[in-house]
């Protein structure tokens, strides 16, 4: 049995009087890829943001191995170095080149030797096909390229777990693939990942386990086959049907 990296227990999150997450339990094992799906506004982003302490929680606990993750607590700076996060809109630092974006945290936060990190960064950039862009500024890159840089930036911290929040949602369709391919490669390397996505095909390909969240709760979870092909709950079926319907509509329109 692989060790558990991230544990969420009885997590409750409220905004003012609105309950966003209610009694969420989740354990992510080393090397596991967990994909979270669910309707817009169900709390997927909120759950990810809680996982690296960007959101205050009302009750329950989140732990990276044995360390508690809590917004505002003093150890957050240490813990976040072990949790990589990739945002929907890349959030690269626009005033720094691609390479400097990647080097900033490893050199300033982890105080690692610049030469070592640079060698690692260039190797990673090469892996995602962007070695020649090391000296470019983010504004000179396409969305797909920016997102690949953002992934490399997170990887270069050597995190124990990676969080992805709809990282292809802002991309033009032809760029979605290049980013998903990078993530599939990471899954093959047995990286521990939690991925929020609306790309169902991708979810099927990459996930070890799929969670369906609705109304702030995990409604259903299991292997991709179980949840995506043979959902037990009606809500899950309804949700997945929306995608079917969208596909039919798209076909009719085009």
């Amino acid at each position: 049995m692989e060790e558990t990296i991230l544990t969420v227990k009885h997590l409750k999150k409220e905004y003012e009087d609105k309950t966003i997450l209610n009694d969420v339990d989740l354990a992510v094992k080393k090397g596991e890829v967990v994909v979270i799906i669910g309707p817009s506004g169900c709390g997927k982003s909120t759950l990810l943001r809680c996982m690296n302490g960007l959101e205050k929680t009302q009750s329950g606990s989140i732990k990276l191995r044995e360390e508690a993750i809590e917004a505002g607590s003093g150890n957050l700076v240490q813990i976040r170095q072990k949790i990589g996060m990739v945002f929907q809109n890349y959030e690269l630092f626009p005033h720094l080149t691609v390479l400097d974006n990647i080097l900033l945290a490893p050199t300033k936060v982890q105080k690692r030797d610049k030469k070592d990190v640079k060698a690692e960064a260039l190797k990673l950039l090469e892996r995602v096909g962007l070695k020649d862009k090391a000296g470019s500024y983010p504004r000179q890159l396409s969305g797909g390229q920016k997102q690949r840089v953002a992934i490399v930036r997170a990887l270069c911290m050597n995190p124990e777990i990676l969080l992805f929040d709809e990282v292809t949602a802002a991309l033009d369709p032809e760029m979605v693939r290049e980013v998903l391919d990078v993530m599939l490669e990471l899954a093959r390397q047995k990286r521990t990942m939690v991925i929020v996505t609306h790309e169902m095909q991708f979810a099927r390909a990459v996930a070890d386990r799929v969670l369906f969240i609705d109304q702030g709760k995990i409604m259903e979870e299991g292997t991709p086959e179980e949840v995506l092909e043979h959902p037990k709950k009606e809500r899950t079926q309804q949700f997945l049907n929306i995608f079917q319907f969208e596909k039919v509509q798209e076909r009719k329109i085009s």
Binding site: N52, L54, L76, V77, Q78, R80, Q81, I83, G84, M85, F87, N89, E91, L92, F93, L104, A105, K108, V109, Q110, R153, A154, M157
Partner: peptide, 19 residues
Amino acid sequence: IQEESAASLGMNSYQTMRY
């Protein structure tokens, strides 16, 4: 969100401001 981006890389508030 640049602040969150920096925070997610483990930067403290001084490093976030400075860099």
